[in-house]
Amino acid sequence: MFRRTSTAVLSACALLVLSGCGTTSTTGGGAPNTSPAASPSVDYAARAREAGERHDRQYPEIAARCAGLATSLPRAPGGEGTDPPADKYAENNAFKRELPDTPRGQCLGRAHADRIREALTGRGKTVPRTEAELRTALEGLGYSAGPGVVHAGAGQTGTLWFQLRVHEGGPCVGGQLHDPVRIETHGSYMEGGCWEPRGGH
């Protein structure tokens, strides 16, 4: 009795070993079908670094202007709020806050704003009057001016606005082409993007 039971147990174990315990199976065509490995996590720091390197190759004069500036964020001031109503207002309107930018990022934004301003409004330049003209001018400067970058007010003489990101993860540059023309840099907003959010939650 004991010998038969032992033989049965050993036979069952041998079958389990030969089956591979489910780690590898074969499909109808005989090809191995291994279980998928966990997908690697995205390295956002490396992605931002690569985007910054592409930017510096495309705009070497701006990279030189901002060389040597810190690429890390300044330390945020500590301390708790002492005005509950003001704290609640700030919390409810947090979606309108701009994310802080590094000293180098701020410098890049100012340099690009100056570059765009000179190209669009400098001596001998004709300020774009339509969305198509503004989009063409921005793309001619090497910026992505796809959907959502350029907006126009109503009517033939409506104000033109634009908001673009200098590079992936970089500062925003935007402005209005009206009297007076205003082009400036700012950080992206808490909820993402370069256009100021219209509503909260």
Rank of each mutant, 00 (worst) to 15 (best):
M1F: 14
T5P: 01
A8K: 15
L16T: 03
L18V: 11
G20N: 08
S25I: 04
G28D: 15
A37I: 00
A37N: 01
P40M: 12
Y44A: 13
A45R: 13
A45F: 08
R47P: 03
R49G: 12
E50V: 11
G52E: 07
E53D: 13
H55D: 07
D56E: 12
R57Y: 12
A63V: 02
G68W: 06
L73V: 09
P77I: 04
E80A: 12
A86Q: 14
Y89M: 11
A90Y: 12
E91T: 11
F95Q: 02
P100N: 08
D101Q: 11
T102N: 07
R104A: 03
Q106G: 05
Q106K: 13
A111L: 04
R115K: 12
T121D: 01
P128N: 06
P128S: 10
R129G: 06
T130E: 03
E131N: 08
E133H: 06
L134V: 02
R135C: 01
L138W: 00
G142M: 10
G146V: 06
G158L: 05
L160D: 02
Q163V: 08
R165H: 00
H167R: 12
G169T: 06
G169S: 06
P171Y: 04
V173S: 03
H178Y: 12
P180Q: 12
T185A: 05
G187R: 03
Y189T: 03
W195E: 08
W195L: 09
R198Y: 03
G199A: 12
G200N: 08
